[in-house]
Design a protein around this nucleic acid. Structure first.
Lengths: 126, 126
DNA sequence: CGGCATCCAGCATGATACTG
DNA sequence: CAGTATCATGCTGGATGCCG
């Protein structure tokens, strides 16, 4: 397989099409990078399945609307699995799918980097 | 070093504070995940320093405002270095700082994952 | 060429109330 | 408990024009 010179130096060789305006991966990327997605992925990556109310408490500051909306998007994209047990009161659990765990790993790495950097900056600032 | 049980199973142990509403890392994360940041990081990660006009062409669809705004944010956060040569016509080059390269690596991994997944989905869909 | 200032539209997000 | 529906808003992002 031939590799074009311009992308040879990158460990992740992105196809040029990614930079195109209407590339579907851009849309997908923006969905995954939306305000609350990383936080929910992180919340689910760390630990056991969580219920709606547990997620709401963990993702401090999220509104019910955004929780529902973000969970729905992650579920539609195949990153989150929703399991509802037909009891009263309702009992719903959210878990990561295998693909969701992959994604969460990458997102966690990014968050971890930011956290470390922010902590370091704070230390410098006193 | 002791690790709390709830975070022991994660390769990246995020401090609990990340989930707090006013956590500064959330703000930083959202800035880095803004619509155009990943694309510009990717554009600069792959290859030589780029000029304003080159970046504009590469990040297809970006407006001048968002290009300026995003570059400025990345520069303020220490991820991008701006070098202006005082000639006429002006000649300005943008490069990644060491921290920017770290960040770009993580972002590229994420983009690469999304791209692969999207391609796989497209293949299935025909 | 490489911006910045201004104005404007649309969507992401938010607050609140209601429901199965 | 686990959502949906509705209304409000604010900020991101876009179009245009001007400047060094």
């Amino acid at each position: 397989m031939e590799v074009s010179p311009s992308s040879a130096r990158l460990s992740f060789a992105l196809p040029e099409g990614v930079f195109t305006a209407n590339c579907p991966t851009r849309e997908q990327l923006n969905r995954v990078m939306s305000k609350w997605s990383p936080l929910l992925l992180a919340a689910l990556a760390d630990g056991p399945p969580l219920r709606w109310s547990e997620l709401r408490r963990k993702a401090s500051g999220i509104t019910e609307k955004m929780l529902a909306q973000t969970l729905r998007a992650l579920e539609d994209d195949g990153f989150v699995h929703r399991e509802a047990r037909p009891v009263v009161p309702p009992h719903v659990e959210y878990t990561l799918t295998p693909e969701g765990e992959q994604l969460a790993g990458l997102v966690l790495a990014l968050m971890s980097f930011i956290v470390d950097r922010t902590v370091a900056d704070d230390a410098k600032a006193g």
